[in-house]
Design a binder for these strands. Sequence first.
DNA 1: CTGAAGACCTGCCTGC
DNA 2: TGCAGGCAGGTCTTCA
Length: 275
Amino acid sequence: MPELPEVEVVCRGLDALIRGEKIEAVITFRDGLRYPFPDFSALVGASIEQVSRRSKYILIRCVLEEGGPCLLVWHLGMTGQFHVLPMAEEAGKHEHVRFDFKSGKSLRYRDARRFGYAGVFSEASWLQSDWYLALGPEPLSPSFHADYFYALCKKSNTAIKPLMMQAHAVVGVGNIYASESLFQAGVHPKRMAKRIAYRRVKALVLAIQQTLSRAIDAGGSSISDFVQVDGKPGYFAHDFYVYGREAAPCRRCSAQIKRMVQTGRSTFYCPQCQR
DNA sequence: CTGAAGACCTGCCTGC
DNA sequence: TGCAGGCAGGTCTTCA
């Protein structure tokens, strides 16, 4: 399901809906997803203080009864969804974990393909974890800028699109927004990163930031099964310029949008606008 | 070391 | 209608 904008939208929705809730029970319907589940029982009795995000990880900050904060970290994989429902409502299809709150509400995690994963950390152990340490800069933070990305491009020996999608380069740029940002910047997805001029790298950085920001503002993309926490779809898909538009006319120049496979992923581009 | 390909899963759509 | 094949937003592991 999610790239960074979708995760951001889910976080905002969750923060509004479960902040302050007290966890009464955690029920798992299997042993794990991508990895075995952590010991969720540590969270029983904890109150949810805040929901935020780092990269595509959802960070659910809890305060334990005995005092001391605790961090529930969740990655949605491809098809993970959180829903807040009344406790009494029956488990839906592919529901794997349920957090019951004292208020009678409950947080459900569904994930058809089961690529999602979760961990329980202390604040300090999260910052030292392999998951955290693998992450590059946030695309919407000041640490992601043209000088930084240009230096990285120069060192790289790969095409620009796979580089953009590597988490150590910049987090949160997935397959959709990589294609969309490259179109906006007029850069061909197969262009070798080291052969892009500084001014074009600068345009690409700006395009990534604008594309992600606009998607967040629109509530995330509504392709396939993305839904917000309240079940409403996102609306950004209506704005795609190239993604999923193979053989359709380019919105800028009317040339046919092309699809190709690049490092195992579909890439969409306009052969006329992107060089 | 780097970078590409394979693997993990299920569901859905297309075409025969 | 049924079924095989291809495809799907991520990322970790394996291989060259």
